[in-house]
């Protein structure tokens, strides 16, 4: 997931939520999907609110 872009993560999340809402989700799959969705949410939230030191460094080194 580390290399995933925000929009990719969001798209995947949307797809999961939609399929759960559509009632297509098998209960056996539900747990795994919800877990994945939670990871995606965490990932997205981190992108929004946690400073990426690597990015910060890149920015500072920019001429």
């Amino acid at each position: 997931m580390a290399k995933m872009s925000y929009s990719e993560a969001k798209k995947e999340l949307e797809a999961i939520v939609k399929s759960i809402e559509a009632g297509e989700m098998d209960v056996d799959l539900l747990t795994a999907k919800v877990k994945r969705a939670s990871e995606l949410i965490t990932f997205c939230k981190e992108k929004l609110t946690t400073t990426d030191e690597e990015l910060q460094k890149l920015l500072e080194e920019m001429a």
């Binding site: 969001k10 939520v17 759960i20 539900l30 919800v34 949410i41």
Partner: peptide
């Protein structure tokens, strides 16, 4: 707006999952 969309998705996920259960 982006964060809200995420929250809405999360809310939908939680409520739908709970509903499903």
């Amino acid at each position: 707006k982006t964060a809200t969309e995420l929250d809405v998705l999360q809310e939908r996920l939680v409520s739908r999952t709970q509903g499903l259960l």
